[in-house]
Write a protein that binds this DNA or RNA. Structure first.
Lengths: 324, 324
DNA sequence: TTGTACGCGTTATCAG
DNA sequence: CTGATAACGCGTACAA
């Protein structure tokens, strides 16, 4: 592995000059071209570890998400990437699998590899950010809040829950259930609250009986839906507060022969890759990609030295109901 | 940011002793606990950049994939992660977006950050691996071959194409089209070849007329399917050589009112999150997750010093046809 | 077992 | 514009 010393001696200049060439600092064209030639023959590339140790930063952003198999987060990731790459940053993804200890490890790595900053979709509301915060590295929470006073980009979750529930009641359903995520994840809690408010106002049944907490994946949605169907008086409609639980619920309903108007379904978050037209499903759109773009933008501002107090951006007007 | 020197002076020992404590080398329990106490109060963690510069390696594996929004690759990624974490490695994901220059950048980063090794699903057959190979870092190709003599984990693609085509012909279809990926990606080429062999043997039409190259995403599948439908004599069945193109084809067919037995569909690779039962679709399963597990296993063997010649593992028997 | 001192490959400072 | 040199934070001979 060639170093700047090798290049320097081959080009008959000092190591400092080599460094300057690779950092766009003023160097006479004569020496510069000698350096480039030498670097080419030696197949030299600056060692980022050493550079990063010296400069105390790198051009890499860490994006830490809880579930890489959820298209919502991959879409968000694409948003982050597109924005970051446009600004010259690379993005590495870390999957925490909803596990706060894995999350801590990745944050540790990000900081300790001198990455420029972190965008975090927290695994829970008791994530441990001390490693990041104590080093003063820029960090932005996205989608979910982390329980710290840091930058954040969120959507207005309660209205999303309200919209989903309202759509079903307006369609004439009477007992609208809710399949939501684990407690302690604020997106889930807020969306549930939105559903609850509408349901209580609507009246005619006891909403709390029709609330199920599940994990945020397909099997969670399946289990919850199956449980709801086994009730003495089952719901006639259901709100799923994320996309994958929605898929699970739809699967169980489909398997039970309950389609279309028999049981109403509203899902918060786009259904991934729906091959078949989900004609009778209400979708409350969440701007996943734009969450990513916005978070990357905020983070890069911080990296560039922005020191205003932490702020939270709420993408209020991007929630839309598509009842096809 | 606390360093070993800070910890050392607080614990009244030498920096070397601090280092030893954090690397499990013999240290008297007395001093060890003093070090741990000091480290705790200073909130110290070893700086990975410095460590990695010194040791010339890290405990991080890079997984470089072409499309993070394709569930096939995220599933593969989960396989890699699970295996790697079990062995004490962390995994960072890099998304190349099918772009060889982004790919080169990420490989560059991986090497130059002293990552332990790379698992690469190549963006094309002319990827540039010189940065990795010249440094002698372990690398494993997965899913697709990279055009170098390196370790690889693949599936037997041609039989997959044959199985998909055969299933449709056996179901009585006469003109089985094929929507495949870009030329130069060997998985696509091989699967196409499988379809072609079966189609030619079957006879009764000119298969080449019913072959379409598309990008590997949903819109690629949509465009190709639309094109096929506009033929004077459209196909009565179609093989999609990857999951997302399959979704695109199904969407277009569904929109055209062509469901179920009107037009037959076979897809190579699991359909992601199918909320509705794709009753009449033939799926040729590709063991995405196991590809990841196997690749991680191979890579870690290399990291641990295995020096046998490069080998390619083909997961032959894991392809299964599920015609529900 | 412990400490001293050097080097991993760069970049920044400071002379010239 | 250029070169020598000191860090960046850590691990590891080598010596004690």
């Amino acid at each position: 592995m060639a170093t700047i010393y090798d290049v320097a001696s081959l080009a008959r200049v000092s190591p400092a000059t080599v460094s300057r060439v690779f950092n766009g600092m003023p160097v006479s064209e004569e020496k510069a071209s000698a350096v480039r030639a030498a670097a080419a023959t030696l197949n030299f590339t600056p060692n980022r570890t050493a550079r990063s140790l010296r400069k105390q930063n790198s051009e890499v952003i860490a994006l830490v998400i809880p579930d890489i198999e959820n298209p919502f987060f991959t879409s968000l990731a694409r948003g982050v990437e597109d924005r970051a790459q446009a600004e010259g940053y690379s993005v590495v993804l870390c999957n925490t699998d909803d596990d706060t200890s894995k999350e801590a490890t990745y944050l540790e790595i990000a900081i300790s590899e001198n990455m420029a900053g972190v965008i975090l979709a927290p695994a829970s509301d008791h994530s441990d950010l001390t490693s990041v915060l104590s080093r003063g590295r820029p960090i932005v929470a996205v989608d979910r809040s982390a329980g710290y006073d840091i930058d954040g980009v969120m959507v207005d979750n309660r209205p999303a829950g309200q919209a989903a529930a309202s759509a079903l009641f307006k369609a004439g359903y009477k007992r609208v259930a809710c399949i939501t995520g684990p407690q302690g994840i604020d997106t889930a809690d807020e969306r549930t609250m939105g559903w609850r408010q509408v349901a209580i106002r609507q009246g005619g049944y006891v909403p709390e009986l029709y609330l199920r907490n599940a994990n945020h994946r397909v099997d969670g949605g399946r289990a919850a839906m199956a449980d709801l169907l086994s009730m003495e008086v089952p719901p006639d409609a259901v709100v799923a507060t994320n996309n994958l639980m929605g898929v699970g619920a739809l699967q169980v309903l489909s398997e039970a022969g309950l389609t279309a108007p028999a049981v109403g379904v509203a899902v918060i978050g786009a259904l991934p890759f729906s091959a078949l037209d989900p004609a009778t499903i209400t979708i409350v759109e969440i701007p996943a990609r734009n969450l990513g773009i916005t978070a990357a933008k905020m983070l890069i501002e911080r990296i560039n030295g922005d020191t205003q107090p932490p702020r939270t951006i709420v993408l209020r007007n991007e929630i839309s109901v598509a009842s096809a």
